[in-house]
Design a binder for these strands. Structure first.
Lengths: 327, 327
DNA sequence: AATGTGAATGAAATCGTTTACAACAATGTT
DNA sequence: AACATTGTTGTAAACGATTTCATTCACATT
């Protein structure tokens, strides 16, 4: 089904159909005929023809560190939801946690003439900075605040500060922190710094924070806990960089015979569903991951419509403290 | 930089350059000239032109019911992993659980000339059957066994039978089943039938199974449990269609003061991570979701290479019973 | 009545590639 | 020597969309 055939059915020229689709001056009568013809035939314009003629393609590249992760799934769902009502489709590149792949996708997607790229950020290195600068299509980064690029990110620092402040206010003043790879600015650095900021505000020494840097693997909770106890045997409050780590930590604590939260409070980030099942239920922070995806997609659509030369936009999203019973 | 310019530099016709790139008969002399011209100019053929001319595009459409779900994420990751080492990229369509969108994507992706489509199956209706038959590009369905289409699916029936058999063998002979929408053949029907098959093998009346059909929402566990108890107050074993439902059911049972598994055993499907945290730990069935994705992608690549006219292939994947302490 | 304005319209050119076709040369076969 | 066979080569016609250009027409302004 080509634009010619549709035009023939509607009794107009192919140019008129193109104008109908892309917005050009057209009488209401023809508009109606064309609408009917398109509905009748289920015509969709060929991406190939469009791309050849315009040099652009109605596809937006989405680069994610891995797909099989809850937060990534939420963001992607948000992007998909927003894009569904646009003319753009989403082409997905998963890096399988390999950092080089991220930059390769950035390259190959541009070579494939995508209209724009949404990148779920993880680590930030000089080669990232260079690749971002060199990017010839609009680029939106989610989940991280990188300098000089359009971003939609979470208030990891604020969330951590409030969470830790809450824990301190409840009397847990010997804090421990189980973190992840600090090359990830948002999850690795900001959350830890937020905790330390809360300590400072409470008149405590931020360097007194017992801490270990693990990985995103939940097992980090178990191994991390043992290291933490060695660092500070009197520790009575643990904040973990993710709920998965926190839940594993809780299990390990229980095995050691400690009561939660009386002997030691625990908290995490992400509002994982499993946190509603544990005993006690996990206090955590809810981030608006799906909204992050829709915001990023909206920003991208705006960039594509109004030209990419606008000043750098960096949107910070809020969070909600979810108080349950582990503090 | 177009094929014409390269041809001019090499002193040959554009056709010769095309033959050089795609493998046609060509003298060694011209071959060398063209090689030099291409290296000199850094020419790369335009995907748009190729696509338009050949009608094919190096993209594989993946249609999923929703992205933000663990099993979908796993399958998608498997597909992505396999595709990464091929020349194809993945274009993702998420249906947001809307069944019509599924068929719309099937349409629009074909209109966009994708090379093939991988569809994560959910419901199966006459309009699905028709759309599948009418599909002009290779189609692989995952997670469901539909007649007449290439499929990669799980042994839901066998898994349910073994799981229920296990429960019966441990003395839980008054069974209840909390299911989901039975328009989903795999999760809705096969799992329930497997349970009933096990009952029959144990000399029980399969119609004696107390059962309710809920939704994928975990809350189904709570509401379903109450209905089940009303149907059969002496019930001492519950099988749930998913782990999420099972975990909620366990919570509700505990609130009613029942001991698990002494008063009532519980089991689910999917090997959700949360099942390792609950008290008691959840007995479940592990399906190989990621493998399902890689197998489907491998099948697709094979179909694309060796022509789609091969007989219908339906690959059944295995499962592993994960015995923990809820039975 | 003459002129200017702007919207509506279709014909035709264009994008970069592949490939059917025909032409040709070089070789082997009778 | 005539003929078939094989392998190289270039020409030109697609593929399906967008967009420039020129034309028409209706209406408002002088």
């Amino acid at each position: 089904m080509t634009i010619r055939e549709v035009a023939a059915i509607a009794g107009v020229s192919p140019a008129a159909v193109s104008r109908y689709l892309n917005g050009g001056s057209l009488s209401e009568a023809k508009r109606a005929q064309i609408r009917r013809a398109i509905e009748e035939t289920g015509y969709h314009p060929s991406a190939a023809g469009q791309m050849l003629r315009t040099g652009r393609i109605n596809q937006i590249g989405v680069i994610v560190p891995q797909i099989n992760s809850e937060s990534v799934g939420e963001v992607t769902a948000g992007v998909a939801e927003k894009l569904a009502s646009s003319k753009y489709v989403m082409i997905l590149g998963s890096c399988a946690l390999n950092e080089e792949t991220e930059l390769e996708y950035l390259q190959s997607m541009q070579a494939n003439h995508v209209a724009g790229i949404i990148l779920m950020g993880t680590a930030y290195s000089p080669s990232h900075a260079e690749a971002f600068q060199r990017c010839r299509v609009p680029l939106v980064v989610t989940g991280q605040k990188f300098p000089g690029v359009h971003c939609v990110y979470h208030d990891d620092f604020g969330a951590a500060r409030e969470l830790a402040g809450h824990m301190i206010a409840r009397g847990h003043r010997h804090l421990g922190y189980i973190g992840v790879n600090e090359e990830d600015p948002a999850v690795g650095l900001e959350r830890r710094r937020g905790v330390q900021a809360a300590m400072e505000e409470a008149g405590m020494d931020p360097e007194g924070l017992a801490r270990v840097a693990g990985t995103f693997d939940p097992k980090t909770g178990e191994t991390g806990l043992l290291q933490l106890i060695r660092q500070d045997p009197s520790m009575n409050g643990i904040i973990c960089a993710t709920d998965k780590i926190a839940l594993t930590t809780m299990q390990a604590l229980k095995r050691l015979g400690r009561r939660i939260p009386e002997d030691c409070a625990v908290a995490g980030f992400d509002d994982n569903w499993a946190g509603t099942l544990s005993e006690p239920k996990l206090t955590t922070v809810h981030f608006y991951q799906k909204q992050c995806g829709t915001e990023a997609a909206a920003m991208m659509l705006d960039l594509l419509n109004n030209g990419a030369q606008t000043p750098v936009r960096q949107t910070k999203l809020g969070y909600t403290l979810v108080e349950r019973s582990s503090i």
